[in-house]
Every structure is written in C-alpha cells, then in structure tokens.
Amino acid sequence: MDDLDRKLAEAQRRTEAEGRRGEYATEALIEVDANGIERLRIYYANGCDFGFPVSVLEGLAQATPEQRREFCLTSGGLGLHWEALDVALYIPALIGGIFGSPAWMRQEVARLNGQKTSPAKAAASRSNGKKGGRPRKVSSTSG
C-alpha cells in the first residue's frame, strides 16, 4: 500500500500545482466550425482554449453527433469522459498531440503513412509490377 499511497500523494500534488497555474479545463463542448467540421473545444481557467477535430480522437470518429455531445469533465478539469462510448481522454495529453491510446496512435500513423505517395514508392511499385506483382494468395481447401 505504500507505493499506492505515494502515487496518490504525487498525483494530488500535481493536481494542486496545475490548479494554481490555471492548467485545468473549466468547460468543454463540441461545436461546428465555419468549414462544417465538428471540433472539441476546451476552455481553460487561465483563459486559453484549444480545439481539435473530433475525427482525430480515438473512439469518437464513428460515434453519432448526439453520442459525441454526451460527455463530462472529470478529474478536476483534467479529463473528459463519454460514458456511453466508454471513452476517456486526458486533456494534458490532448494538448501534447496524443489523441488516443499508444496502440491506436501507432495504427493511425501507419494508416496515414500508407496513404502517402512519393516518387520512390511509385518506382518500387512499378519494379514489383515487372516481377509479376504480389504473389496470389493460395487458399487451402479440404476435400
């Protein structure tokens, strides 16, 4: 229990320090910007505000607009929680560009990188095509 008590005390000290600096959210809402893009907008006690397209946040892109709007601030203004979607986001991580779990972030980076084109990628594709392309999948059938 000593380790847990130490971690809780450390978390409490961090929360108090962030509160003194105004580094906690006082309000968050989903709004539609001038381009018709849904954005999560977070307002801080120190007067700052940040916005993120909902489409970049893990667990929210496939949710309905109604589901996305049903959330609350948690952890003294440091978190957001969508109970119906089982999604929780840590606001300081969002500010740092971390929009989901490590596994989800790796998957998103791979997906985005797979969409990129370059002269080298095009040349490699042409070269592989000259070799007959990707081998066909062989299906095993039992008879």
Rank of each mutant, 00 (worst) to 15 (best):
Q67Y: 01
A84T: 11
I37N: 06
N113M: 14
R126K: 15
L80G: 01
I91L: 05
P53T: 09
G77L: 08
T15P: 06
G97P: 12
L89I: 01
G96R: 06
V32R: 06
A124Q: 13
C72K: 13
I37W: 00
V56F: 06
F99W: 04
G19N: 11
E83I: 12
E58C: 08
Y24F: 15
A28H: 06
P92K: 11
R41D: 08
G47H: 15
G79C: 10
A45S: 13
I42K: 07
R13L: 05
A88P: 11
S55T: 01
L80T: 06
R111D: 02
D86W: 14
L60N: 09
D86E: 10
F52Q: 03
S75C: 05
E83F: 02
G76Y: 04
R20W: 04
G79N: 00
L73V: 08
A122L: 04
Q107L: 13
R39H: 07
L89W: 01
G79H: 08
G114I: 15
V87K: 00
T117I: 04
E27Y: 04
R41E: 08
A34E: 10
E31P: 01
P102Y: 05
E66C: 12
E23T: 12
Y24P: 08
T74I: 13
G36N: 06
T64E: 13
A61H: 12
A120D: 10
V32I: 10
F50K: 15
H81W: 13
L73D: 04
P53M: 07
G19V: 05
G19W: 13
G47I: 12
R21Q: 15
I37K: 13
I95F: 11
L94D: 03
Y90A: 06
F50I: 14
T74K: 08
I37F: 09
R69D: 01
E70A: 02
A120T: 14
A103R: 14
G97D: 10
V56R: 04
Y90H: 14
S125R: 01
I30S: 03
R111F: 07
A110L: 15
P119C: 09
A25C: 14
F99M: 00
I42L: 10
Y24L: 09
E70C: 02
R39D: 01
V54H: 08
G36H: 12
I30Y: 02
E108D: 06
N113K: 13
A93T: 14
R106S: 12
E38H: 09
E18P: 05
Q107G: 10
G96D: 15
G97R: 02
L112C: 04
G22C: 09
C72F: 11
L73Y: 02
G77Y: 10
P65W: 00
I42H: 07
E38N: 03
Y43P: 04
R41T: 10
A84L: 10
R20K: 12
L40K: 00
G96K: 14
L78I: 05
Y90P: 04
A110R: 15
Y43V: 12
P65L: 13
S118N: 03
G79Q: 05
R126Y: 13
L78W: 11
D49C: 15
P119I: 02
V54L: 00
I42N: 02
E108Y: 05
L89T: 07
W104P: 09
R21S: 06
F71T: 11
V87E: 07
V56W: 05
G51T: 15
G97Q: 12
